[in-house]
Computed example of a mutant assay.
Amino acid sequence: MPGPPRDKKRKARTKKKAAGRLVPLWQSVVPPLPDGTLLSGIFTMEKWRLGKSIGKGAYGEVYEAFSTAEEFSGSYAIKVEPISNGPLFCEIQCYLDVAFSNKINDWVKSHDLKYLAMPQFIDWGKNETSPSLQYCFLVMERFGDNIEKLFEEAGRKFGVKTVCYLALRILEALEFLHNSGYAHADIKGSNILTGYSQRDQVYLVDYGLSFVYQYSQGGHKPYTPDPGYCYGTLPFTSIDAHDGANPSRRGDLEILGYCLLEWSCGRLPWEDYIEDRSKVASLKRRYKDAPTDLMKDCFKGNVYPKYLQKYMECIYKLSYEETPKYNHLRQLFFKELKDNGMSDDGTGLDWISGGGGEG
């Protein structure tokens, strides 16, 4: 069990990251819903029974959920937010457009994957019984711990195999999401969850900031910066987001790169300036022009992983509307695994083995 000093450091980091969240926080909340509350799904027309609360986010609460319907006999969770809040409606729309099981299963089969780190859509609904209790809800698969928590428990350092595994799974999920016309815009450890029973699997969740980057008739929406608008979570958000431009594919890949760097070295160079948005943005722009300096500052002058530098260099070269070469990016991580005598087999991950920092 970690001692008090480490707990204090963890709380300080959590406070800093909370301060770094850039999306607006709605003030309305849904009062706690009693155990046993029945919710009626709009898509399945099934009844969902709430269990205990299993998590809270910036906008709402997550409960364990159960259905008496035979076809829904697994473990589920329900996210509840006020109808007046925007993010859950955005997330529901993304699920409806992207995450039906047949679409995900077809992608898994056609791309020869074991699974896809994209949650499947289950159901959604809303309650408008009284002015004081109006909320919408999303029924999801139930997942396990988030990667941010597991990262802390591993001593704030993941080893090569874990970093590469996470990179590969999230790249697969992003290619699928991007192919469907959406960008995620808020990739981070707390939005990546392990499977509930299969802890060697991970899933990219929370599509409350997801954005349709393509027009319905095709073509990428243009780069239109708005200096007064910024979104995401400050330590990881992209340079485009700092400029107030709409989310894009390259933005998602840049955000993922910052996550990979933090998981590899423990902290990002701008962490000390997390309450100064302009300073963080300035540092990110400087490092884009000098990726080697980014690596040196992340790893404090020690030997740094060249595969992560190559990844960041590839992302920094992307234009706003360019289709990323996902397979080329994945090959960087496959090669790193091979060079270290490892393989992408989902074993020996830091949160399963209990160790941190191999390799």
Rank of each mutant, 00 (worst) to 15 (best):
Met1Asn: 15
Arg6Val: 07
Asp7His: 14
Asp7Thr: 06
Lys8Thr: 07
Lys9Val: 05
Ala18His: 14
Gly20Trp: 02
Val23Met: 10
Val29Arg: 15
Pro31Leu: 15
Leu39Arg: 02
Gly41His: 06
Gly41Cys: 05
Trp48Pro: 15
Lys52Arg: 12
Ser53Gly: 13
Ile54Met: 10
Tyr63Met: 04
Glu64Pro: 10
Ser67Pro: 02
Thr68Trp: 14
Ile78Glu: 02
Pro82Gly: 14
Ser84Pro: 14
Asn85Leu: 13
Ile92Phe: 00
Asp97Ile: 00
Asp97Gly: 01
Trp107Gly: 00
Leu113Thr: 15
Leu113Val: 11
Tyr115Cys: 00
Tyr115Ile: 01
Ala117Asn: 01
Met118Lys: 01
Ile122Tyr: 00
Trp124Asp: 00
Lys126Leu: 15
Glu128Leu: 06
Pro131Thr: 00
Pro131Gln: 00
Ser132Tyr: 12
Leu133Gly: 06
Glu141Lys: 01
Gly144Asn: 10
Ile147Lys: 11
Ile147Val: 08
Glu148Gln: 15
Glu148Val: 10
Glu152Gln: 06
Glu152Ser: 15
Glu153Asp: 09
Arg156Cys: 05
Cys164Ala: 09
Cys164Met: 11
Leu168Ala: 00
Ile170Arg: 03
Phe176Pro: 00
Asn179Gly: 02
Gly181Asn: 10
Ala183Trp: 12
Ala185Tyr: 11
Lys188Gln: 14
Lys188Trp: 14
Ser190Leu: 06
Thr194Met: 06
Tyr196Pro: 08
Arg199Lys: 02
Arg199Gly: 02
Tyr203Arg: 00
Tyr203Gln: 00
Asp206Lys: 05
Ser210Val: 01
Ser210Met: 04
Tyr213Val: 08
Gln217Glu: 10
Pro222Cys: 04
Tyr223Gly: 03
Tyr231Glu: 10
Tyr231Ser: 08
Thr237Arg: 13
Ser238Asp: 09
His242Gly: 01
Ala245Thr: 05
Pro247Asp: 11
Ile255Tyr: 07
Tyr258Cys: 11
Leu260Asn: 03
Cys265Leu: 14
Cys265Glu: 03
Leu268Thr: 02
Trp270Gln: 11
Glu271Ala: 08
Asp272Leu: 08
Lys279Gly: 04
Ser282Gly: 05
Thr292Cys: 09
Thr292Val: 13
Lys296Phe: 07
Lys296His: 07
Lys296Asp: 05
Cys298His: 07
Phe299Lys: 05
Val303Thr: 07
Tyr304Leu: 13
Lys306His: 08
Met312Lys: 05
Glu313Cys: 09
Ile315Tyr: 05
Tyr316Met: 08
Lys317Asp: 15
Leu318Ser: 07
Ser319Ile: 13
Glu321Gly: 14
Glu321Asn: 07
Thr323His: 09
Leu329Tyr: 07
Leu329Phe: 13
Arg330Lys: 11
Gln331Cys: 14
Glu336Cys: 13
Asp339Asn: 10
Asn340Arg: 07
Gly341Tyr: 13
Ile352Ser: 09
Gly356Ala: 03
Gly357Ala: 05
Gly359Met: 04
